[in-house]
Amino acid sequence: MSSSSKVSRPWGQISAGLVGGLLLALAVGVTFSIYWPSEPFDRMFLGALLFPLIWIAAMLYAFTADSGKRAWLTIGILSLVFTAFDALGLYLHQAA
């Protein structure tokens, strides 16, 4: 069965959950810390509070994904999108 073979060799899913999930959680946390409409002292904590939840969610998604490739693709694209938002936000903040 294909599913059982994937469960027995899930290094792609595991690395996507652990490494990709960490990067995604950081990127999402930073995005919220930049864009959330409140004082810097307040929104700084939003990113920190979201970080564990995003990482856990990413790990659960990656571990249950059909393949490591798919897990990396989804988490990687999301990470890149949020990182792009972060870069744009930081640029706009510094330009303003």
């Binding site: 946390g29 930073v30 810390s33 930049i34 700084m44 990113g47 920190a48 970080f51 972060d86 930081l90």
Partner: peptide, 17 residues
Amino acid sequence: GLLGFLGGFMALASYDG
């Protein structure tokens, strides 16, 4: 535990680095 690790990122975001 991760406050020192996260603090840099979040400060970067909220206080323009």
